[in-house]
Simulated scan of single mutants.
Amino acid sequence: MDLALLRTFVTVHRAGSFTRAAALLGLSQPAVTSQIRTLERQLGRPLFLRQARGVTPTTFGDELAHRAAPHLDALVEIAEGGLDDVSASRTLHLAGPPEFTAERVLPALTGLTGDDGRALALRVSFGTAEETLEGLACGRHDLAVSTARPRGDLLAATPLCDEEHVLVAAPHWAERIGPDSVRLKGAPALDDLPVVEVHESLPLVSRYWASVFDCRPATTGTVIAPDLRAVLSCVIAGAGLAVLPRYLCAPALERATIVTLFDPVVPPLRTYFLVVRTGALSLPAVARAHEWLQRAAVAWC
């Protein structure tokens, strides 16, 4: 049996689509389709059921993928291991949310270019969770940090750390609503305060309101800036309240340039995941970055 055909088959199985598999393999979609048909003729069994969106493996195809994939991944690991000098200095394409990647991920990965001489070149892309996972699935990235856990077999996710969200504003807003006002009145105590957010849909504020107050916010955004660092700057300047990750606003809280408006017993958390294409941890550069970030994340929690 041709190993190239098996590799194409496993890629299609993981991707769930001939189109996506073609992008990952650097082939045209007709070439992938032809290879799968050739393998099906050799085996005398259908491997996939064609659907409007992608493909679904047959029972036989599913069994073959689970038997073949570990061996193909092992062959990739052997091949990459034989190119150790090259793989150690290869470029790692990383993607994730701009603030967390800039403040946490990139500083942690600078250790990979330490005094062992094995420099790791980095190329970084920022985007939403959906954009990041799509780019990873299509082969544009090697490793992604995402707030969404991917579905399916193409991508594998490992929990990295939890991020605590806090409700903050400049001190004069806290003075305006009065001490204990939020504890006594709940969300209505905040209805007259302007809101600073990253999007018109108020994703962080809405999630906080649902988790802490069991309701939806009754206001719209006053300032919308698609970067949490810009949101923090606006809050410090007095533009209104915001929900921000504690790691990002901790220095401002320590300086008292902003204050928390409410401290719930159980604060809302958001989980970050390290995501790779299934089998990619056999690549030394990806595996090293993956392990390094997991070690660094111990101090972030």
Rank of each mutant, 00 (worst) to 15 (best):
H13A: 07
R14W: 07
R14S: 10
A15K: 00
A15R: 00
A15M: 03
A15E: 03
S17W: 06
T19K: 10
R20C: 02
A21C: 11
A21G: 13
A23T: 02
L24W: 00
L25I: 12
S28G: 15
S28W: 02
P30Y: 08
V32T: 04
I36V: 15
R37V: 12
R41F: 04
L43T: 03
L47D: 05
F48P: 09
R50V: 13
R50F: 01
Q51S: 12
V55P: 08
V55Y: 10
V55N: 09
P57L: 06
T59E: 15
F60I: 09
F60M: 03
G61T: 05
D62M: 06
L64A: 06
L72P: 01
A74Q: 14
A74L: 15
L75T: 03
A79H: 13
A79I: 04
E80G: 03
E80R: 13
E80T: 09
G81A: 09
G81P: 05
G82C: 06
L83W: 04
L83S: 12
D85T: 14
V86H: 11
V86S: 09
T91W: 01
T91Q: 13
L94I: 15
L94N: 03
G96H: 04
P98A: 15
P98R: 14
P98C: 07
E99H: 10
F100D: 01
A102C: 05
E103F: 05
R104C: 08
P107H: 06
P107S: 10
A108I: 04
L112S: 07
D115A: 13
A119Y: 10
A119S: 12
L120W: 00
L122W: 01
L122R: 05
R123T: 13
V124D: 06
T128F: 08
A129I: 04
A129W: 02
E130H: 12
